[in-house]
Nucleic acid binder design. Structure first.
Lengths: 276, 276
DNA sequence: TCGTCTTACGAACGCCGTTCGTTTACTACG
DNA sequence: CGTAGTAAACGAACGGCGTTCGTAAGACGA
């Protein structure tokens, strides 16, 4: 399309050896499409991703893409899986499971946030692609090393994924807007602060009395807070669960047994797989 | 435009008394626009919401809307605020703060999920509209009744909002798809189950060993799990924080003080915080 | 060299958010 | 009653979107 119709006829011996095909463009493959799509997301954000844009970047038409990808949704899933492939989770070390969970969650957040607001595309999608499954496998293994019951581990993975994805989205969105017009984010936050400080205390007594602490902390601190709360909560939840189960068993076995403090020394039977 | 050009001339005495204007259509106001938009979201989901669709429902043109609403984004914010107005949080009762938080989070989730996938529109938006602020105020008050430090309360509100919104979105999305073609959700879940059970155990040992517990539980149970984990975690986090502060102060004042048990006056839900 | 078969792709369809310039409907005043 | 002024309404258009269809081009075995 660029110069297929020369104004002057070309001598035969010139066309004889493969004319103008030297800078051969790479063939269109699903992989190349995913690459191009991710490049667009990386430079302009998720909203700027369009089939036409991807096609343009590959020097072809939009219709071509549909030979390799069912639709935009599938393309997004492929992009997400490629990004999930960037995640590297550690081998579980039971001695440090909480740190490992924190570090891993942080890594996942950072991997996603490095691709702007891409995380938004993962909301409400059930992960089924290879790299996504590998990431889940890794996180489950980490949690299981924490000696938690199976049900707690499973549901905790969901909870952590939710939290991590949300945080990644917010951070990525912020980074994107900061890149779009640097400095505007500061101004926005200042205006936001002014707005909140101007709220009437009689209508929002609690809110206005806590503005200082609401603004406190950067993204990392706040993210770590969430992870800490969740891991501490998992521990406490599991302990409570085991205590209840023990009390039940005790009540069934004999009424003489005192009840209560069962969360003291973590018995190794925590993950006995007794769930259903 | 409906019948301005009659095929047969109308006698003068018919048009004399205000022709065809009897079923006067209500004037276009921002409120009516929000109503129409919410109706569309309620019946067809967030993705089906378009300015043209809203205009059609009001029997007018899309351009008219822009006289009352800056753009689609602002319209969405107004819709969200209207929905936030449906939330009714209880007066804080320090004796039952954990139950109150759970009930409130559940109510918020249900309010949103009742409007299909509307919750998706709230991701990444800082709440500034009246009803949103009122909801935050209420949740902060509830958390503060739990006797948590200000910083914990502030950040916990963020965390809970994230979790609740995500859960509402997932539940709403599910409900929407179930309404779109009833029964298809069951089939989808069955296929999903088959897919996961067919995964190779040597590549996903942890995942495949826990499939039973991953599938366990309905939406409510799983949501409550998350809320319980978070509230238990908040308690534990606050206790650990206070213990550290106490230890610091103790170390400064004199080295003679014993350390540890700071969760004394709190009824102590298995939150010993002794891990690592 | 021919026929087949995969891949590429221009053009079109029906949507979308938003803007522009004009028309309409109503109010207030002469 | 007539008219000027004004705010609301809105048709038409712009550029872009996801997706489909029928055709064109190239690869390749017979």
């Amino acid at each position: 399309m660029v110069s297929d119709v020369p104004e002057v006829p070309t001598p035969a011996w010139r066309t004889a050896r493969k004319p103008a095909r030297a800078p051969r463009k790479p063939p269109v493959t699903a992989e190349a499409i995913v690459d191009a799509a991710l490049e667009i997301v990386d430079t302009e954000g998720l909203e700027a991703l369009s089939m036409r844009g991807v096609a343009q970047r590959l020097d072809t038409g939009a219709a071509t893409l549909y030979a390799h990808v069912q639709n935009k949704d599938e393309l997004l899933e492929l992009v997400l899986d490629r990004v999930n492939g960037e995640v590297r989770l550690p081998e579980p070390d039971p001695e440090r499971w909480q740190q490992q969970v924190r570090e891993s969650a942080r890594q996942i957040r950072d991997v996603y946030a490095a691709h702007n607001d891409l995380a938004k595309a993962s909301f409400g999608k059930v992960p089924t692609m290879p790299n996504s499954l590998t990431a889940i496998e890794g996180m489950l293994a980490l949690l299981k090393a924490g000696d938690l019951p199976d049900r707690v581990v499973s549901w905790a993975a969901d909870l952590l994924a939710l939290y991590t994805t949300s945080a990644a989205f917010e951070q990525g969105l912020l980074g994107l807007e900061e890149r779009r017009n640097p400095g505007a984010t500061d101004k926005y936050f200042r205006q936001l602060g002014e707005f909140f400080f101007a709220l009437p205390p009689e209508r929002f007594p609690t809110l206005t009395s806590m503005l200082a602490s609401m603004i406190e902390g950067d993204g990392d601190e706040r993210f770590d807070f969430g992870i800490d709360v969740i891991t501490l909560g998992l521990r406490a939840y599991a302990d409570r669960m085991l205590a209840e189960k023990a009390a039940e068993a005790g009540a069934e076995a004999g009424a003489a047994d005192g009840e209560g403090a069962a969360a003291t020394d973590r018995p190794a039977t925590a993950a006995d797989g007794s769930t259903n």
